[in-house]
């Protein structure tokens, strides 16, 4: 059919212009989880571009500004997801993390497959310096990947980062706690989920709810996400696996306010 043919051609042209097509990607890094890799049109996380990872707040939506100032440290799940992705990127090459707080703990990163011997950390500072450091790092082809914790990245800055990443081939993971930024190739939302273990066993393997909210070349489903999974961290393989497709979980009870707590001790 001529119409569908021309639409396909148009799509390819647009993809080439946008730099999201298969040819434009500098390479891919498989996530090692067939379900996640299958959902990405490149068969893995494309290199040389921006990826956004956002936390899911306790109420289910994206965290608001207050959350970051007051309870911004309860972001273990999204931090863990970012660290495990960064650990997979770049083989043995060093990776750089531009941190927002000075309390990243190396033994915890090791357990998520991010070897501290490869990790360089830029300790927190003013927002302008964070952006500058990110851009400087992205331009350095000796790095395997760059992660940065940002807050409300403006479009121009994001675009600059994206272009720098394209020219150097270094992938950027933006742990973005603010509004989504435009040029990202993929956008993820990660939140914690109660672990599963037999009764009396204590805390089971880490479980996260991972949503692929946006992905170039893939449409968004009716629930507003491309795909969603419940993933579980496997300490043996140093990788995560899909525990259950998300959505089959009974809705979480809303946290009740508890007054009149009796303090212990």
């Amino acid at each position: 059919m001529p119409t569908s043919l021309s639409i396909d051609r148009l799509r390819a042209e647009i993809a080439a212009l946008e730099g999201s097509g298969h040819d434009a990607v500098a390479g891919t890094c498989p996530l090692g989880v067939p379900e996640l890799d299958g959902a990405l049109p490149w068969g893995g996380l494309p290199l040389g571009c921006l990826h956004e990872i956002a936390p899911v707040s306790r109420s289910g939506g994206v965290e608001d500004g207050r959350g970051i100032e007051e309870g911004g440290v309860e972001d273990g799940a999204v931090l863990g997801f970012t660290a495990s992705l960064l650990g997979r990127l770049g083989g043995r090459r060093p990776v750089l993390w531009v941190a927002a707080r000075d309390d990243l703990y190396a033994p915890g990163l090791t357990a998520l497959g991010l070897d501290p011997a490869r990790l360089l950390v830029v300790r927190p500072g003013p927002a302008a310096q964070v952006l500058w450091a990110l851009e400087e790092a992205v331009r350095c082809p000796a790095l395997g990947g760059v992660a940065g914790e940002v807050w409300n990245l403006d479009f121009t800055a994001a675009r600059r980062l994206h272009l720098a990443a394209r020219s150097s081939g270094v992938p950027v993971l933006l742990l973005n706690r603010g509004q989504p930024c435009g040029p990202a190739m993929t956008r993820w939302r990660v939140g914690p989920d109660p672990s599963v273990a037999p009764p009396g066993e204590g805390v089971g393997p880490w479980r996260w709810r991972v949503e692929l909210v946006r992905c170039r070349g893939r449409g968004v489903g009716e629930d507003g996400v491309v795909s969603a999974w419940m993933v579980e961290w496997d300490d043996e393989t140093r990788g995560f696996r899909v525990a259950a497709p998300a959505g089959h979980r009974p809705p979480m009870p809303a946290p009740r306010s508890r007054r009149g707590l009796r303090a212990a001790g």
């Binding site: 990163l109 501290p116 011997a117 990790l119 360089l120 830029v122 300790r123 400087e136 000796a142 790095l143």
Partner: peptide
Amino acid sequence: RLLDGLGNRLGFRRVVRF
């Protein structure tokens, strides 16, 4: 080159490894 660039602008104490 990157590390020296970051160190000179941000201070060498702010670019670390564990």
